[in-house]
Design a binder for these strands. Sequence first.
RNA 1: GGGCGAUUAGCUCAGUUGGUUAGAGCGCGUCUCUGAUAAGGACGAGGUCCGUGGUUCGAAUCCACGAUCGCCCA
Length: 1059
Amino acid sequence: MSSFRPVDPKQSFPEMEERIAAGWKEGKVFERSLQQREDAEVWSFYEGPPTANGRPGSHHVLSRVFKDIYPRYQAMRGYRVPRKAGWDCHGLPVELEVEKQLGISSKQEIEEYGIEEFNRLCRESVFTYVEEWNRLTERIGFWIDLDDPYVTMDSKYIESVWWSLKELHDSGRLYEGHRVSPYCPRCGTTLSSHEVAQGYKDVVDPSVYVRFRLKDRDASLLIWTTTPWTLPGNYAVAVDPEVVYTEVDFEGETLILAEALVEKVLGEGVSGGKSFKGSELIGQVYEEPFPGMKENSGKFVIISGDFVTTDDGTGLVHIAPAFGEDDYRVAISDGLYDPTSSGEDGTLFNPVGLDGRFDASVAGFEGEFVKDPEVTARLIEHLKWNGRLFRANDYEHSYPHCWRCGTPLLYYAKASWYIKTSEARDRMLAGNEKIGWHPEHIKEGRFGRWLENNVDWALSRDRYWGTPLPIWGCSEADCDESFCAGSVADLEAKAGSVPEDLHRPYIDDVTWDCDCGKGQMKRVVSVIDTWYDSGAMPFAQFHYPFEGKEEFEQRFPADFICEAIDQTRGWFYTLLAESTLLFDEPSYRNCVCLGLILDGEGQKMSKSKGNVVAPWDVLDKFGADAFRWYLFTAQQPWAGYRFSLEAISEALRSFLLTLWNTYSFWVLYANAEGIDSSAAPDPAAEPTDLDRWAISRLQATVEGVSEKMDEFDCTGAGRLIAEYVEELSNWYVRLSRRRFWEGDAAAFATLRHCLVEVAALLAPFTPFIAEEIHSNLVGGADREFGSLPDSVHLRDFPAAASALRDPVLEAAMAATRQTVELGRASRAQAKAKVRQPLARAVVVATDAEREAISSQTELIKRELNVKELEFVTDQSDLVSYLVKPNFRTLGPRFGKSMPQVAAAVAALDPGHVAEVVEAGGEIGISIDGKDHSLTADDLLMSMEPLEGYQVEAESGHAVALALELDDDLIREGNAREIVHAVQNARKDAGLEITDRIALSLAGDQELLDAAAAHEGYVTGEVLARTIELGGDTAEAAAPGTPETTIDGKSLKISVVRVD
RNA sequence: GGGCGAUUAGCUCAGUUGGUUAGAGCGCGUCUCUGAUAAGGACGAGGUCCGUGGUUCGAAUCCACGAUCGCCCA
């Protein structure tokens, strides 16, 4: 015989959770949960790797608990769900952190400091906070294998990445081109958009209008630019084919520009001449715009550009592919330049060196810095001498500068390696169709749109801390020899030995003599975009294809991934792009997107605003379950959160505490009753309707929760559980309290079963409290689980037993609840206390409801404290009928005639309709001279109480109370008041609920008479062994006993504990 | 500038394929119940469902335009 661990109603959840987490660790529960499913089908989860060089915040808790709940659920459903952790190690953010630490800020300084040492610091920095990450992960109950994570900087991981790059390289899908980006010629660095945003300054630049003379006739294109230094790099002029252009005769020459801009450029009153669409200009050629070039790109043709506007300029845009992103893109799409070609078109003409100075091709300007104001003046002078300059002004605008050194940035094409993702666009779109997005609109919306506009992936980065691009080329300019390493062995075969650490600078030392006999094979210095690393995790985490083939195949594609919504263009994309290119299939089947965590005012959390809610504050104060429950159920996760400590506290109060109290109630009485934790339920225990109702509602809840969880809707699922717990606590337990005091075996068995199943439903949501409840209710104080699992996380998810569903009973109980609510409202209106019994309640309900309600007569009588329950029949004086059309059924049938139908129904005699409908008959109405018949479904019948009764009514259903009292009722009411007062006295005396007492009452004779009349009731309720009434006994037994009053009558109560 | 999403009570959120009286919780006020409960119950105050137009017999729901906020990109 063993009991249950007593439950502290004031339990500290954080404390309990830490104890349970320790128990899991000691009992290897996570490991065992995996082992017991070893032979089961895999349900695959991919962990998107975080970087541990910063402290984890509340948004990390969000993603980590969502990454936890679905794998836990599927594991309980019987799948094997391996959960391998991962860490993202490379990238600019890591480098910037180290730069900050060293107090340096440029590539030059990094190289002076030494790449070897710099990268060593990066390697360390990556795991600065890994301990805190691991601690948090365990504390929030995120079950993932932290002992064997994949680490993107490991040589094995890098080798897998190399393998994939070689696959792409060998099929021509990895190619070298250029990338136009903001570039600081002094620091020799490309700047990220974040850095660019920091460096905008208002400056004065020239605003230059230049003539581009047409070759075949005497007219000039008028071009506007604020960067005359880019003119030597001109390839073409872009127009909008739909915009109207015009030829203007102006001061003796013919100029071509957009008609809409004539007055703005040439002055008011000037009007255009012959007008035509831009498409007519396309294909025409013009003379070299910057005369005197020693060599040039030699195209000078008019092309179409989708970025041309008539907001400013002339509607004709000078195209220098080396100096503008749009320019570069349009040059490729128009065939002026083909980065994948080895012919003449394959070379991008760029007359400016990496130092920002003109090269020898620009005669007279060689070695000059392009943004030098003096040089600019000379450029303009040069254009003027050659008759090209139309006008030059000053132009004040905001222009980006290097945030470190203040040098104006150049948009500049640098050699860069690309992956030809555009070729796979249609296949990626097809793959996207197969992905289950949550929310759904991501598929066609944000992600789909992004895929449709796919451009080739610029892969290389001229940085230090990253996976090195495994491409070697000959140092001899004339030699085309190149080599892509697909493995360490490949490279060893070429170079002899390869360092263990594949990072820079060691890998840069791997060289060998080229077969051409003249040059040396050297690595292209770039590293790759760190996003490629994480996108490679489906295969690289297993060192595929060198090892882990079986694991890779079993787990590819993932059934589930989950990250914040900003990953649509990050990880969600790189995963899809890489798996489509390499395996022709998307690498995930379902994706849950998470929104942002904002503060309580809807502001973004940031350190500078000081509104950050640190996860540990929440965990220490309210616990992990409360945090998890809030995140799962507050709202759909992609909507974002307005997050505050108050919000968590409410989740705790309204849900976890309700559950806890129900559980603590059960344990309290089970122990008082001496229930044996290891004994089977008493088969003789006869369940009541209420028991069967609780079990039936449990099945409905289980069914609903499983459905929602299968659809990745834990918010909906959690709300169903909350609703059930509320019903259990505030309906089942409240109405069943007496049965627990009396040791009713069916009640104990029912509530125990419901709580254990709720714990199982909650296991994926709130794993700690679920474990606590399950372990005590199943295992008892001795933790003897018999043949059952010793952890809720080792059992199967509940399955709904449809045989235990009773929809009729559920409907009856719903009607009963409503009846009770109406009755209580009625009492409140009449100011008739519930303790005062009343002779009867009269329920107004239609026949169907009446049947349901009358099945629960006893329950309602007890709840409303009335002696009789009566139903009002038709023709009663108490109610009138109401009949309304059912728009749902009639709308589709009558359409436009609905207003007439509604009028016809309103004109019916409700009493008559009720009679006919109850008899199963039909009602005829006439619309536009045609007869139609309406059935019971088409009409909504209800009853309404007539004036003059103390009734409460809601949606055609009402309860009236008989308020007149006779002496019996008054005595009984007084007896209940006395019980209430004695219970308070017991409480004040600090007695345990099971203590027996000797009771003495003295005071008002009427009260004493009531106690005498109901002596059995009074002594039973307050556990009195003896009772003495009258005289001064109360005073004598307990001198100084305070006097209480009931309805103005005084009463003295003495309670004395007896054994 | 482009794409995507959001806007419902003081606050946080529900609201089914369009169906006629738009709900819940918290908070507030009044009352009440209580030997499981930091709880429960009743009543009340609180809503131009962001705005304008349209479709429809009927719109919080569908469409168009606009406003505000957010995210991503330029």
